[in-house]
Nucleic acid binder design. Structure first.
Length: 122
DNA sequence: GCAATGACTATAA
DNA sequence: GTTATAGCCATTG
């Protein structure tokens, strides 16, 4: 059974209409990988990258998540850095929303953005 | 083709 | 614990 409905994914797809451009392909793969993280658990950029077939490309995962539209059902907020903290600049809109989303799933972030729950191991 | 960029990471001090 | 540094990968100009 599958993951979240990638409605927002399809909505975004920058240039999928044309033939040779598969630029959204990588992002999409990353997004789908993120969708596989169960609710209430966390994962890291590095792990997501590896599982998406891009070992070592943690930064690329960050870029993909940044492109993600707000109305997406992709649980981007379940992705944190290797330190178990949020990588979003504190005080920003994104960081706020991440805290809210995680709180809704029972994950509370400390003042510095440190998650209480242990990270999810694939 | 090269240099700069970034929601990263591992290591060392 | 934290900070500093040097790799890392794919995109972008």
């Amino acid at each position: 059974m599958l993951v979240c409905k990638p409605r927002a994914l399809i909505t975004y797809n920058p240039v999928m209409s044309d033939k040779h451009s598969m630029d959204g392909d990588l992002d999409q793969r990353i997004w789908l990988t993120v969708c596989a993280i169960p609710a209430g658990k966390l994962s890291t950029y590095g792990d997501v990258a590896e599982r998406a077939g891009l070992p070592g490309a943690a930064r690329r995962v960050g870029a993909a998540l940044r492109k993600l539209p707000e109305d997406s059902n992709v649980p981007w907020y379940r992705v944190v850095n290797a330190s178990g903290k949020s990588s979003l600049p504190p005080g920003t809109h994104g960081a706020d929303r991440q805290r809210a989303h995680l709180a809704a799933e029972g994950i509370l972030l400390g003042a510095g953005g440190a998650a209480v729950l242990r990270r999810y191991r694939w």
